[in-house]
Design a protein around this nucleic acid. Structure first.
Lengths: 246, 246
DNA sequence: CTTGACTCTAACGTAACGTGAGGGCCTATA
DNA sequence: TATAGGCCCTCACGTTACGTTAGAGTCAAG
């Protein structure tokens, strides 16, 4: 398929396809003698993925990192898309409710506080959680919070134990250097563990680490295993991510 | 309320508020001696409106034009927001369905055409209609198509007759100049008529005119009253909009 | 063999902020 | 009363994801 055919099929502009080619996000599999771009079926599948992510507000840079990452699992990604779209719809419903409330408010039927006027827009209570849900989906967030939701009974317990083991191991090491070999091995386990359920790019992993210290609720949960563990993990995850990239 | 308080309340950045001030979209009602911005309750209501429009993908320029327009009716605007949010949710549901289909597809349970893979993203079938719904809401579009939906029986008939009267009047004038006094008077009636149900800025009115000729389905419907009427109306609406602005 | 629709690269333009830099304001506390 | 920390200001340049010409080649239909 040539550019315009693709553009018309998916409802985007030719320029957008050119742009994605330029930045290496979606490079067509072939070209004609005249230098025309030719898109394969695989290209279309990738494009679909790209548009899903775009719909969710990811930057093209992140999208590129995600779909190119070695651990990228299309199946898991799709399931993540699903839960994130559901989240987005919940948000839309909140806004919708706010509009409806406001309509009744202007008719003088009810009163509204300033808080209520901005419900749906307002993420101020849990900014990082909202961001995290946007980035990594519900499951990952719940997991990091120690919830391990939505997994059948038996398995859930086993996972919880595996998780705690890693936390305990890291807690023992938390007074040494985050870059030390032992610490990096343990944090590598953590990375692997997270990747058994979702798919994490090194960048996402690094971001998750930041969240551990930026969001008090995360910090509190993690520091149960030893004060300062969250900070220690954040630093170790940073080092780990750096090394993964090169 | 000072900048940061507002920013935290609604979940946007301080820079965004500065920006809205810069472009004259949301100028705070007061300033302290020190030059600090002070936002009133009215400012907050306007901000809420702005965010509704932004959520629907309007550009800040359009938003400014809309909320500043003389004919701006908050009540009607809110009802428009509601139907547009519903439309957006329908779109989100389409994408969600596509994701779910794709999940089953990758599991080999079902097969999918290329068309199906991009459902929800694809507006190629009705680009102008989609755009119009985004711009003016469901009602306005249906009305222009001659549907006059969602109005109780009696009233609907009366409105339909009023509409046809104007069409017939314009059809008679369509071989003269669109800028002629009679034509402008008739198109003024059309503008007033549309404003009895929704709220149209001159810019929106101009855009609607363009749609009459850009979208064949609109053209066909209008030209039933006389060939070339759609084009004539577009030109008359353009002139009318220009004069309204000055 | 000439349209007209489609393609290319190149390059500047735009919207909606983000991100410092450099510098005042304000109030709790030592 | 001094000073630190948090908030505020105004430039002003940077960034993302394309839009928009401009100039030129390609290709199927009539």
């Amino acid at each position: 398929m040539k550019v315009k055919e693709v553009a018309d099929l998916v409802g985007i502009s030719v320029r957008t396809l050119h742009h994605y080619d330029e930045i290496g996000l979606l490079v067509p599999d072939g070209t004609t003698e005249a230098g025309y771009r030719v898109y394969s079926d695989d290209n279309l599948e990738l494009l679909q993925q790209i548009l899903f992510y775009r719909e969710l507000g990811f930057s093209l840079k992140s999208i590129k990192a995600i779909v190119n990452s070695a651990g990228f699992d299309r199946q898991k990604a799709l399931e993540m898309h699903r839960s994130m779209l559901l989240e987005k719809r919940r948000r839309l419903d909140d806004i919708l409710a706010t509009v409806e409330q406001t309509i009744r408010h202007t008719k003088g039927e009810i009163s509204m506080t300033n808080q209520e006027k901005f419900k749906g827009f307002d993420f101020s209570h849990h900014p990082y959680e909202e961001e995290a849900r946007q980035r990594w989906g519900d499951e990952a967030v719940d997991r990091s919070k120690g919830k391990l939701a939505a997994k059948p009974g038996q398995e859930q317990e086993a996972l919880g134990e595996a998780m705690n083991d890693i936390y305990r191991k890291l807690a023992e090491l938390r007074h040494g250097s985050p870059a030390a070999e032992e610490a990096q091995a343990a944090i590598g386990e953590w990375y692997a563990f997270l990747n058994t359920l979702g798919s994490y790019t090194p960048e996402a992993f690094r971001g998750l680490g930041h969240m551990y210290v930026d969001d008090e609720r995360f910090t509190a949960n993690i520091d149960k295993f030893g004060t300062g563990l969250a900070m220690f993990m954040k630093e170790a995850m940073e080092v780990f991510a750096d090394r993964q990239i090169r």
